[in-house]
């Protein structure tokens, strides 16, 4: 891969020529309305102070349980949701407060592939129309050129040219996800968010789609933010992995470091729950007690302390900072405070 361990940034959001996406202290609080007058009685802290940077050509995997804020984070980065606080930089441009009109130019460069292949394609449009729509909005290509582009995209994702005239209901989930990918990549974006793009698919199809995405990344020099709730899926495609818990990043590190030497107790628990095929290589399973606390009322101090087997008194009071422990290996845990 293009990036190596040594090139990883010192600070998590250090400004760098190679940085494509940078997020600083981003927060998303959804208000909870209640009472007769529908006033705000609280907030769901979906994303609570997250900072990260993604380099050009890199794949950052984001894992977490449902409710950890990973999809919200992705949607904020491409500005489908407005952040409550914080800054988003794309290609060193602040896009946090751009109007919809100005954002339209940036939409050329960032795209998203959604989780549910049955809900993410407009069922009333043919495959050709679906793939050509971004071209129609974002480019000045003629009708014939758009058609040619759509055909070449279909072939690129392993479908046939005459699938253009078909409608989404005629395809299987995996094929639909290929159509979504073709649609997202038609305008040659630089940055693509995969919002759990394979979690709705059969395991056999998952590998096909993941390989397709990896091949296209090489071919088109794409940068990915790959969201998943499954560490094994992320391992397949990522260069670096961020583990999210309750709207915060618990640990972010190069893939090898996360999988071989996880530091955060939450990451350790997640990894121990991944099924292993090698029976000679048994390891101890860490079973987490309890459920994910409500993001509207997160625990004080460290959000993970209520389920953490190593929690101590300090975890109740201090919220751990995300600090670098080794080369590019950041962890938010008091166990590693010096």
């Amino acid at each position: 891969m293009a990036t190596t361990l040594e090139e990883k940034s010192r600070s998590i959001t250090s400004v760098d020529q190679d940085t494509l996406v940078r997020v600083e202290n981003i927060k998303k609080y959804f208000p909870i309305k209640g009472g007769i007058l529908k006033h705000t009685i609280g907030h769901v802290k979906a994303v609570d102070d997250v900072s990260l940077a993604i380099k050009k050509g890199e794949t950052l995997g984001v894992v977490g349980e449902s409710g950890s804020g990973k999809s919200t984070l992705g949607r904020m980065i491409i500005r489908l949701l407005a952040p409550t606080e914080g800054k988003i930089y794309f290609d060193n441009q602040d896009i946090t407060n751009l109007s919809n009109e100005k954002l339209r130019n940036y939409r050329r460069d960032m795209q998203i592939v959604f989780q549910d292949p049955f809900a993410s394609l407009n069922s009333k449009m043919s495959v050709g129309q679906l793939i050509e729509e971004p071209l129609l909005i974002q480019t000045n290509l003629s009708k014939v050129e758009r058609k040619e582009k759509a055909i070449s995209m279909l072939e690129k994702v392993g479908l046939r040219a005459d699938d253009r005239a078909k409608y989404p209901h005629e395809f299987s989930g995996g094929q639909r996800q290929r159509i979504s990918i073709a649609r997202a990549l038609a305008i040659s974006p630089k940055f693509v968010i995969g919002d759990e793009p394979v979690s709705a698919l059969d395991v056999s199809i998952q590998a096909q789609v993941l390989n397709l995405m990896a091949d296209l990344q090489d071919e088109l020099n794409l940068t990915y933010l790959f969201i998943a709730h499954d560490l094994s899926v992320v391992k397949h495609i990522s260069d670096r992995v961020a583990v999210m818990y309750l709207g915060r990043i618990a640990e972010i590190a190069p893939k090898e470091a996360i999988y071989d030497n996880p530091l955060h107790p939450y990451t350790q628990a997640l990894l121990s729950s991944v099924p292993i095929t090698d029976i000679d290589h048994k390891r101890e399973k860490i079973i987490l007690k309890g459920d994910l606390p409500s993001p509207s009322d997160p625990p004080s101090g460290c959000a993970f302390r209520t389920r953490c087997p190593m929690a101590h008194d300090r975890c109740k009071v201090d919220r751990p900072e995300l600090l670098e422990k080794k080369n590019g290996h950041f962890v938010a845990c008091h166990l590693y405070d010096r």
Partner: peptide, 20 residues
């Protein structure tokens, strides 16, 4: 629905999202 978010993500105008 996700396909509406998708349309927004490709920069479709409000008019286009409503009518298409």
């Amino acid at each position: 629905q996700e396909f509406v978010l998708g349309a927004r993500a490709i920069g479709a105008s409000d008019f286009r999202i409503i009518f298409r």
